[in-house]
């Protein structure tokens, strides 16, 4: 045990306005911000390790407003407190956004999947998180709420630097919005997800690759790539995507995309893996994704 529980302040919010009112007190310079506490699956780990910042925590787990998945004709809205277990099981997510249910399936243990939330996963801002690459590949949007209103941020622009994001201390992530593809859409959809974490379960990724594409014959109509664990943030690979849209998907284009991606990522050596491995595997996964796009 390396934490001192008595140094922490915590309260529970029962409604969204109540939670937002708490967060609005975050500007108090003496007492520091209130931090939202959702499923607690990251908080418990850092707390046990003694690295959780001492301060004020508002438990938002009871907020019914942030639960559940709403499907309309053109979008799917995922409440921020939706758990991995719910993501794994939801029929529209599994059918149309399978990268998210695959990611949910590979996150932690069953107990973690019952408790961990998509909003918490985003706000924890770990570059090694499993769901963000899929959210990037589907070009998701986030809705943030505060006492002064709500705003929508493209997820691709949400993370700026390591553990830094476009969220004010008084704001709460409330929803993740995904656009459903119109039916019929041109071309063939390809969803590709691969988490590389050395063991088959309960792993933190060394490289996580999520790719979505629509291909018509030799030509990519759409391609979006989200990567985990190869940069300080979950990384949307816009330059590589641009390179891939520049011509027919042949060996020359794959080589060009590999060269671009090789510069777009910023992997490091750390306790889990090394730069060389992360770079090589990322490029191998790109090739495997594109080979699948080619229908091979």
């Amino acid at each position: 045990m390396s934490h001192n529980l008595s140094e922490f302040v915590a309260c529970s919010a029962l409604t969204l306005p109540e939670a937002l009112a708490r967060l609005a007190e975050s500007s108090d310079p003496e007492r520091g911000p209130w931090r939202p506490l959702a499923g607690g699956t990251d908080v418990m780990v850092t707390m046990a390790a003694g690295t959780l910042p001492v301060g004020r925590y508002v438990d938002i787990w009871p907020l019914a407003e942030l639960r559940g998945i709403t499907v309309t004709d053109d979008s799917v809205e995922i409440g921020a407190l939706t758990t991995y277990t719910e993501l794994r099981a939801h029929p529209v997510i599994t059918a149309e956004f399978p990268l998210l249910s695959l990611a949910a399936r590979e996150t932690g243990a069953i107990a973690i999947q019952n408790r961990g939330t998509i909003g918490g996963n985003i706000a924890n801002a770990s570059p090694a998180a499993d769901t963000p690459p899929g959210l990037l590949a589907y070009d998701a949007e986030l809705e943030l709420a505060s006492l002064s209103g709500t705003r929508v941020v493209p997820y691709a622009r949400f993370h700026s630097k390591y553990k830094q994001m476009d969220r004010r201390p008084d704001e709460l992530i409330t929803k993740v919005r995904l656009r459903r593809e119109p039916s019929p859409s041109p071309g063939q959809p390809i969803h590709y997800y691969r988490k590389v974490g050395t063991r088959a379960a309960q792993a933190i990724s060394k490289v996580c690759f999520a790719g979505f594409a629509r291909i018509d014959g030799q030509k990519l109509l759409t391609v979006r790539i989200g990567l985990g664990s190869v940069a300080p943030i979950p990384l949307r690979c816009v330059r590589t995507e641009a390179a891939l849209l520049s011509g027919p998907l042949d060996e020359a284009l794959i080589r060009r995309a590999e060269a671009t991606l090789s510069y777009e990522i910023m992997p490091i050596d750390d306790v889990r893996s090394n730069l060389r491995y992360r770079r090589t595997v990322t490029l191998n996964l790109l090739r495997e994704f594109l080979t699948r796009c080619q229908g091979r």
Binding site: V45, R199, A200, A201, Q202, V271
Partner: peptide
């Protein structure tokens, strides 16, 4: 030991 946690010291799971 830099990886003295079960998240980073990789013991095989039942799936492995």
């Amino acid at each position: 030991m830099q990886n003295a946690q079960m998240t980073n010291y990789i013991m095989p799971t039942s799936l492995d």
